[in-house]
Design a binder for these strands. Structure first.
Lengths: 115, 115
DNA sequence: CACTTGATAAAGCAGATGCTTGAGTACGTG
DNA sequence: CACGTACTCAAGCATCTGCTTTATCAAGTG
């Protein structure tokens, strides 16, 4: 558990998702592949800026880029999303386990009081 | 859907999770409350630095701080975790829906070919 | 070939981030 | 009251980010 490499992986993942533009891009790619130009179209910023966001997303493992003619189509890598999901779910599970223990503990205390 | 405020909320959430120390703190708090001093103990950095991480987590809604004597106990706010989870699950759902459609489409094409 | 299109590379810059140290505050204890 | 403890506030600083612009490259098109 908790190796440094895994930490770096999660750093890159969550940092990548911590930007509105990049979340937009991920959401867009969840509906299918798209080229850099297509991804850049909705934004006021330059295509270079979007290209840099794509680099961040690629380094995080969230997307990958292929080659087709003069374009570089981007596609979502859902495995990376799963990694982020898993981390959150682990924390949630730990928290709710503890809540359940507290609950049963309190229930027992109350039972004794009512006897 | 997709209001600016919700975007800012998600920015804060994912950015907060994009740091190893802050994820550590969240994981630690999923097992129960802790004071700033207790949270700072495992790290080489100053308590002030940890206090600043806590501020970031608080602004993101992931944790909240109370007061008890001279300490400020921190507790996890699981609702914020759920918000992050939901965003990821939405993207995943969109992606897998599309995959299912592609699958059935390909199956149909193959059926016709085999006739 | 010259020219356009889709994209990356590189440099520069304003602003954010993660830490530090030093000072201040609030509560509790001798 | 003086002192210790648990913290926050504030300023400073190195580094990182998110963008820009200019330059370059690779793949089609006239």
């Amino acid at each position: 558990m908790g190796t440094t490499t895994e930490d770096q992986r999660l750093d890159a993942l969550f940092t990548a998702l911590g930007d509105r533009t990049r979340r937009d891009i991920v959401a867009r790619l969840s509906t299918g592949e798209a080229t850099v130009k297509e991804l850049a179209e909705p934004y006021a910023m330059s295509m270079q800026a979007v290209s840099q966001h794509i680099r961040v997303l690629e380094r995080s493992g969230l997307i990958s880029q292929g080659r087709h003619r003069q374009t570089r189509p981007c596609r979502l890598e859902p495995a990376a999303l799963e990694a982020a999901l898993s981390w959150i779910e682990e924390s949630r599970r730990t928290w709710s386990d503890r809540m359940n223990r507290l609950e049963t503990h309190l229930a027992r205390l109350q039972e004794r009081e009512n006897q």
